[in-house]
Write a protein that binds this DNA or RNA. Structure first.
Lengths: 345, 345
DNA sequence: TGCCGGCATGTAACCGGTTACAAGAGAGGA
DNA sequence: TCCTCTCTTGTAACCGGTTACATGCCGGCA
């Protein structure tokens, strides 16, 4: 049996109240008593029972994180950011993945609800309504990659439409005519916005969008999509709705001896750390993934502490990151177009 | 204020004991009562208070995970495996990163100790002693990437020596003479074992090891190491002690126009998912990262439930995964050597 | 000397579940 | 009719912290 505060009190010959006060830096203990109690507590290796503490304090010092998936570097970066934020706010991190299932997500949220002081949720579904219903707003709710503001306190979103628009516009400006698009899952709002941005750029350029293939944001689906494309005449470029799928495409293309960007251009979305290290380095829409994670955690902690912060949606616009994969750089001889805000190595 | 079991009892006109029994599938409630209570509980959206539950049941249904870092795909895979295991055992996952600092790790362990039923810890330090001291064996302890069996119930280790030995032997067999090694941190046991394996292979071949450069398992340090090598005459091959650093090397080499494997061979360790997608695909020592995570979680859960399982160290031997980066395949005209157990795409 | 105020400390209630034990109801046999 | 046995339900103690309130001690002042 673990040592309890009563054991410490007995050993230190004081009351449990005094022990509690000594451990929690209350003002109303003499220095001498505090030192004495701390010494005994340390000697007995006393660690307060988390459950008991959360029961009487009505807080858990924990924030819950629910993500749709854990595959790939995108989530690893996100978790890293969340951990950074939680750590600096002295909160624990309770992590769960819903594997894209609504029912699993709802179940996970219900199970988490009473064990956390706040939630950071990334849902692939249209809005925060389901999430909010499962959470019943019992704790602060921060949504990731959602523009919903009706069902949460703060949401973080990226401008998927603008991001995809800029990547597509860039590919068009580079002289690519037939541009295929590997989309995300049909029921995913972000995926839809990226597809819309892709189409909008074509509309603006007065050019017809190329083939649109369905993916699921995972690398394998990018591979499969590129294989489909390889089966018939190749387009000039492929724009994958995220970097993971772009990596899959790149792999498929290379395995068939198709060279990027010489034979076909390629672009992604997210700018995961590996993107710049691919061969060729991947043109993509840059999203500060870890930074968003950190801010989401910070923000959730502020909400828990009742700090007055700006509610609503925090939108960040992805930055067009031009690298070698988009091709035809010197071929057209054109100056870098207006929307290429930055060129990274 | 959240709805409590007493609120449910009042609304259902039964006692709290009956509500508790109905919710926990006790046999001693009539079907009718159970249905009635469940309906009311659902209507009130009752979720039991986690802290209260853990206080009276003396369990938290949570396993704690402490990792040294969260950068890169290695940890993302590990977490994915851990989540899989935890999920199938209906346990929550409390995640923390110690950022390689002993003091942080010890603090994190103390803070976690009373909030979890079991711990899965990956420590970069020599043995489990510090970890065990911080945990005081209050809960089952599973160590990752450690051969320590004295201070934990089960440990998972990979045979770093054999893995590195085989990779180095393979490079040597491919005809590379001067092979540089990019090592991990000096105080990391795994890093040391890999270095020893590298040296042993050279000893066996009667060949002197090439330059040994210090890294820290992160991609940047691989980049830096390769830059150092680029400053003088290049070796025939670089063996990086993990894939992340190999990726850094690859990047540095390419940026200087050095082609892999034509100009220099390259190998890594871990076989993170991206390794096979690199250009060229990376020869490496294959470690079933996610699988180890899942097994560690499963095993921790078994220990929590008091199931009799085999204690001690579970060693897995990395599989040599030969891909294009190791070069000189056809050059020597030799048949695949004995230790190349499998050739992956 | 006696009273008062302030401060350190102790006692016990409370947080919200679970469950041992008590109690009551209903059936069945003598 | 009454007793007993079984089965369902209720009462209250307990898990281990925190903290409102009570208490006791001490110094200072009249």
């Amino acid at each position: 049996m673990a040592v309890t505060i009563r054991d410490v009190a007995r050993a230190a010959q004081v009351s449990v109240a005094t022990v509690s006060r000594a451990l929690n830096d209350s003002q109303t203990v003499t220095d001498e008593t505090r030192k004495h109690v701390l010494r005994i507590a340390h000697a007995l290796d006393f660690v307060p029972h988390g459950g008991a503490r959360s029961l009487s304090l009505r807080r858990t010092d924990t924030i819950g994180v629910l993500l749709p998936d854990l595959h790939g570097e995108y989530f690893s970066e996100l978790i890293r950011g969340l951990d950074l934020g939680a750590r600096s706010g002295r909160q624990h991190l309770l992590l769960s993945a819903s594997h894209g299932e609504v029912s699993e997500a709802v179940a996970a949220l219900r199970a988490m609800r009473s064990r956390v002081d706040g939630l950071v949720v990334m849902t692939p579904f249209a809005d925060g309504e389901l999430v909010a219903a499962a959470v019943k707003r019992a704790v602060p709710l921060v949504l990731l990659n959602s523009r919903d503001t009706a069902h949460c306190d703060v949401s973080f979103a990226i401008d998927n439409h603008a991001g995809a628009f800029n990547v597509a516009k860039h590919l068009i400006a580079r002289g690519h005519r037939r541009i295929a698009f590997v989309s995300g899952p049909a029921d995913n709002v972000e995926a839809r916005d990226r597809l819309r941005g892709f189409k909008a750029a074509h509309r603006e350029a007065g050019q017809a969008p190329g083939r649109i293939l369905r993916g699921n944001f995972r690398e394998e689906s990018g591979f499969a999509a590129a294989c489909q494309l390889l089966a018939s005449e190749l387009p000039d470029a492929i724009f994958a709705a995220n970097d993971a799928m772009a990596i899959g495409c790149l792999h498929a293309l290379k395995s068939e001896g198709v060279q990027v960007p010489r034979d076909i251009a390629l672009a992604g979305f997210d700018d995961i750390p590996i993107a710049r290290l691919l061969d060729p380095p991947l043109t993509t829409a840059g999203v500060p993934i870890a930074e968003i994670g950190r801010q989401a955690a910070d923000c959730c902690i502020d909400l828990i502490r009742g700090k007055k912060i700006e509610t609503g949606c925090r939108l960040s616009v992805p930055e067009l990151v031009i690298r070698a994969s988009s091709g035809r750089q010197s071929g057209t001889g054109a100056a870098p177009s207006a929307q290429s805000r930055r060129i990274r190595p």
